[in-house]
Design a binder for these strands. Sequence first.
DNA 1: TTGAAAGCGCTAACAA
DNA 2: TTGTTAGCGCTTTCAA
Lengths: 364, 364
Amino acid sequence: MTEKSSPTDPIHARGGSGATIADVAQAAGVSVATVSRALSGNYPVAKATRERIFRSVTDLGYVANAHARALAGATTRTVGIIINDVADPFFAYIARGVERQASAEGRLCLITATHGDKERELALVDLMREQRTDAVIVVGGASDDPRYRKQMADRARALAAAGSSLVLCGRPSLGPDVPTKMVTYDNEGGAFAITDYLISQGHRRILYVGGPRDFSTTASRLAGFYRALDARGIERDPALVHEGAFGRGFGYSRMRELLDQDLGFTAVFGANDLVAAGILEALEERGIRVPQDMSVVGYDDVPVASELRPRLTTVRVPLEELGREAVRLALAQSPHDAGASSDNTLTVGTHIVIRDSVSPPKQS
Amino acid sequence: MTEKSSPTDPIHARGGSGATIADVAQAAGVSVATVSRALSGNYPVAKATRERIFRSVTDLGYVANAHARALAGATTRTVGIIINDVADPFFAYIARGVERQASAEGRLCLITATHGDKERELALVDLMREQRTDAVIVVGGASDDPRYRKQMADRARALAAAGSSLVLCGRPSLGPDVPTKMVTYDNEGGAFAITDYLISQGHRRILYVGGPRDFSTTASRLAGFYRALDARGIERDPALVHEGAFGRGFGYSRMRELLDQDLGFTAVFGANDLVAAGILEALEERGIRVPQDMSVVGYDDVPVASELRPRLTTVRVPLEELGREAVRLALAQSPHDAGASSDNTLTVGTHIVIRDSVSPPKQS
DNA sequence: TTGAAAGCGCTAACAA
DNA sequence: TTGTTAGCGCTTTCAA
C-alpha cells in the first residue's frame, strides 16, 4: 500500500501520516544519513546532493518528526512555563517575555496554567518532565506548605538529574541544597519605597489590603511595608493590615467593610493593582474622592493601573524582562555542573511610578 | 556504570538522564511490556504486580518519555495555538479558552506568537507539524496575499493528510477545497448592530477609524458598518473612513489629525477597543467631552473597555468561548473523513454592550 | 496474566 | 562525501 506522491501534489505525501526521512532519501536517491546531515547542516554534503534533497523535501512537504529527533538526539529545544492564568496580565507579560526569549534562542514554548491549584502545578511539572523540556519555569508566589515544598524539591532534583532545570520565577527558594535557578524581583524593596513615599506625603495611618496569607509575595510586600513604618518610627497597627486575596473583588468588598469601621486611615496600599482597582471602586461608590480625601497605591503596574481614573501610583515590576531573564538563566550552561557557587539567582529591580492617586492627607 | 537508585533518594535515579521503563521493569522484577500495560491501564495486570510496579515508579521518580511514547504510539495529546501576542488581551482570552478546553480534554497546549509576522506564522505551523500536534489553531485576521493563502492551504492539506487538522479561528476560509475547520465570530453583524445603535441615537455622520487595510477582520467590520448606513439611507462618505492599524497609538494620532479637519462627525466607531481608547485620549486632550460632545464606540469588549472613563459602549466577542470551541472542533472526530458536509464551521454570536460613551448628538 | 521482539523516525558513530 | 547500522524509550502484536 505504498503510495507514491504525485509531483503535482506537493506537501501531500503518503496516505495518513506524512513523509518520513526515508521517503525523502528514496526520492533523492541517497541514504537517510545524508538527508539527516543535509537537513541539520552540521556535516558537509555535496552541493548537488543537497539541492536534490531539498527539492525532495519541498515536493513531499516533509518536516522532521520532533519526537523521533528528541528521542535520538539530546535536546528537545522546548522550554516549559507554568503560570496561574494565561489571561491575567501579570502572568501574560511574564509569559510574553518567556515566549520571546525562547523563540530568540530557537526554542518552542509550552505554556500551561494551574488555575491556582497547587496539586495541578506539581502535575504540570511532571508533564513537562515527560516532555523532556530543556527547562521548566514556574511563576508566581508559592505555598509554604512543607509537603508541597518537598514535592517540588524532589522534582527539581529529578529535573537537574536529567540535565534540565527548574527555574523559580518570582518565588522563594526551596532550600540551599535544592538544585534550582531563581529569578525574582524586589517585592520588599518596592513595598518599602512606595510606603515611604506615602509617609513622605504626610500619611501616618496607612491601610494594607490584599494578598493571600502564607504566600511568599504577600509576606515580602508586608515586610517592606513594615520596614518603612519602622524606619519612620510609626507604630504598626494590626487593625490596619488585611490579607485575603489578590483579586479586584476582594479589594472592593473588603474596602466596603473597612469603610464602615472607624479606622482613621488616610491612605490605602493595595497588595496589587487589581486590589487597588477594587478599592477605588468602593471609594467612588461612597463618594470619597481620590486623592483629595484618600490616597491609594497598588503594586505591579499592569495595564489597568494607567487606565484607572485617577491613574494609579504603583510599583513597577519589569514583568517581560523577568520572563526573558528566566529563559536566559535556564538555558545558560552551568559553569561546572555541581558548582552551585555560580550566579543561579538574579533579582530585577522595582521602582515606583508616580501618577495621580496620592496627595497629602487632608488636615483633620 | 549502572547506578542503582538508593531507596532513600527518591526521584533521583540514574546518572544524567532519568529513569526509563526498563529501570522500572528491572526494579519491579517484570518485563517492560508489563510495566507499559500497568501504566496505561488498558490491559489487565495482576494486582500484586501492579502495586510493585507503581512502587518502583515512585521510588525512581519515573515519568514516561513523551517522545518515545509519541513515536511508538499514535497521538501526542498536544494541541498547538498560534497567536499574535501572548500579552494582548484579545489573544490572551482566546488562548485561555484553548488552554482550558485542551486541559479538560487531557491535552497539553503549545502556545506560540507571530508578533504579527506572516512568514513566521507559516514557519510556526511547520514547527507544530514537526511536533505532530493533534491540531493547530491559528487565530486572528489573515492576510489576503495569494501566495500566503496558497502556502497556508498546502499546510492545511499536509496536516489533514497526517490526521491532524488546521483550525481557522476568527479568520476567513482558505477556499472550499482546502481541508480546514473554522470557528469565527460575527464581525459583520456586530458592526452592523453597533452602527445601527449609533444611528438610532440620532447620529448621521459617523467616523470609522482603524484596522489594517486588506485584513479580513477590517473588511467584515466595515461591511457591517456600511450595511447599517445603507439600511437607513445614509450616504457613505469616504472621507469618514480611515483604516490603518489596530493599536491605541493609531487611534490617538489619527484622531488628532482628523480633529483638525472639519469633517462634521458626531460619533466615532473605533475598529477595536484599543483604537477607541486612543480616540478617547485624543478627545480628552482637546477638551471634547464624551458622550456629551462626541459619542465613541469600540469592538471586542476586552477588559480595557470597562476600565475607560466613560466606560466604553462596544461589541462583545465571546473570546474564551471561541478558544474552547476551536479545541472542541479540532478534537472532534470527523464523521467520515472526507465528508466535508459535516459541521466543520461554527460561528459564535456577538452583541453590543451599552455603557456610557454614547448619547444623542448635540443640536448644532 | 506475562514476556519477547518488532518497529516508530531519527541521529550519530563507524566504515568505506 | 556518503552509506550502514545501532540505538533512543516506548507500545503493541504474537506467543506462551
